[in-house]
Amino acid sequence: MALPLPPGLTPAEVAFLCEMELVTVIPRQKLDSLHLLGGPVPVLQPPLRNNVPLWLALLLKKQRRANIVPPPWLNVESLSAILDHETERAPEDFSPPPKLPPIGDESSIISPPFLPTSTADGQPNALPYHWMELGEILLEAASDDFEDVDQVRRLLRDLREARLAKLRSGIDALDSGGGKPMNGIGGMEVAEGRSFICGVIDSLRKIGAAKEMAKREREDEDRTGYQGTADDEDEDMDMLR
């Protein structure tokens, strides 16, 4: 009996992974360094800002022991700019992900959630991998730390719709050999689109199987035919000699 879950991660699992992302907090109380499996959490000393994992930030926020600084991409200005990029300037592509740190840096961590993309000094004009879940979680848990909650929420929703529509229209390009660049797509979007896209690809492959087979056979024939003529030429050369 198969596990009754679809392939890939469920939204709750993606959100769980997202909770490892580092966010910036402004502590209201002093908190000693915590020694966790993922490394020590820095000493929290008000009013100094510090980066802590999202799950700890949420816990501290709930206990009113810290405020969360929203990441620089999660405000009206940045989100409007990204939305404009998505809909007007590059209506075919997803907006590019944040820049990776230069290779050869001493910290050779180049994948989320270990990149500080959502801390206060993250890149303001790019959506990180966990943008959707991080945005939703922060808007829900720390809405009083935002300047214009409703506007941010509306922009997030618009972005999500715009990008999902793009993801869906991408199936036109899917065929044997075709592809669609999905650079900059987020974790939750993958979780949402995976089953549909996999289903389409599977079905298209089934429909095209016979054609593909015929093509391969023809190519094989062509190749053997070519070798045949090559052999003939060799023989001719031999005869000439």
Partner: peptide, 24 residues
């Protein structure tokens, strides 16, 4: 086959929606 596709697509959309409402 298309029905199956519709069902899976609908399920995954619903899963995200459920996650969001549980967050609230």
């Amino acid at each position: 086959e298309e029905r199956q596709l519709f069902r899976t697509a609908h399920e995954s959309t619903k899963a995200v929606r459920v996650w969001m409402s549980e967050l609230k």
